[in-house]
Every structure is written in C-alpha cells, then in structure tokens.
Simulated scan of single mutants.
Amino acid sequence: MLTVEESITINKPRMEVWEFMTDPDNVPVYSSNVIEYELVSGGKQEVGRICRGAVKVAGRRLELTDEMVEVETGRTGKLVSKDATIPYTLSLHYEDEGEGTTLTWHQEMESLKGFFKFADPIVLKLYARDVRSNLEKAKTILEA
C-alpha cells in the first residue's frame, strides 16, 4: 500500500475549513491536479454522496468515481474510490490548533502496477508534492 500524508495549519475555525474542504464544488478550486470533479448523487457533505472526476498525475489523466463513506461533521471525512484507474481511500482530519485548524490529508493507494513510466516511489513523491501545493492553495484561499 502506498501512502501520502500531509498536514497544514489554516488560520480559520475548524468548521469553516471543514465546510470548504468537503464541498465537491471547491475541489477543482484548490486542487491544481483535478481536471474535473462533480457531485453525481447525494448531499455534498453526507455519507453516500458520489462524485465523478478526473485528475492529472505525472502527466497522465486518471478517471475516478468516489463515495463519501464516513463523516463526522467538523472532524473527519473519508472517501473511497468506487471506480478509479488507481483505487484509493482518502481521509481528511480536522483538529483545533489555537484559533486555527490543522488539516491532515491521508491517502492510501494500491501499487501503481507500472501504470506510469516511473517507479512507484517517484510518482508518489510527485503526487505528494501536488497534495502539499493543493493544501497550501486551500490555506491561501481560506485565509484571504
């Protein structure tokens, strides 16, 4: 199993960060590697919601459909791929940090099985850099 975990502290209240990050409409706003992402069914921040989209990783377009399988309002959310080029789970955790919020992105993926020209560790490093950049962009947007 391959894992990417990144954390960032955002100088906004936890609920404000949670609402922004769990709204599917905002995913393309803060994620530079997301080409498409749309709500297909369910409520935006509810268990069972389904989203469909595409991301670009290491120059390759990857299609995906994911489902929100766990939600603890203001604290955590977990997405699981239902149909994706590379199966994954993504958990976002929110913790109070003074007057701000520490947001932790934890994503697990199966082996990339030679899908890319590069070895798994190289692609993972490139993707982790994208995740870090996306979290920094979310921080900039939220703190503006």
Rank of each mutant, 00 (worst) to 15 (best):
V131S: 02
A144D: 09
D66C: 07
S111Q: 07
E6N: 09
K117S: 06
T3G: 04
S91E: 13
V27A: 07
Y30I: 12
L142N: 04
V57D: 06
P24G: 14
I141G: 03
W18L: 04
M21V: 15
N33F: 15
V34H: 10
A54M: 13
T65G: 04
L142D: 13
Y37R: 09
E97N: 03
L103Y: 07
M68L: 14
G98H: 02
V17R: 12
V27T: 14
D25G: 02
D83Y: 03
G114A: 02
R61H: 08
S91Y: 01
N33H: 15
E16S: 01
V27W: 11
R60S: 03
V57H: 11
S7V: 08
Q107K: 06
V69F: 05
N33T: 12
V55E: 09
K44R: 07
K125F: 00
S111E: 08
E6M: 00
G59I: 09
E99V: 06
E5D: 08
G77M: 11
A119R: 02
G59H: 10
Y94G: 00
H106P: 00
V29S: 09
S7F: 10
E70N: 14
S111F: 05
I10Y: 12
L62E: 14
K117L: 10
A54I: 13
V29P: 02
F115K: 04
T3R: 10
M15C: 07
T65V: 14
V29C: 10
A84S: 13
D120Q: 02
A138W: 07
S7D: 03
K139S: 05
N33R: 14
H93W: 05
N33G: 08
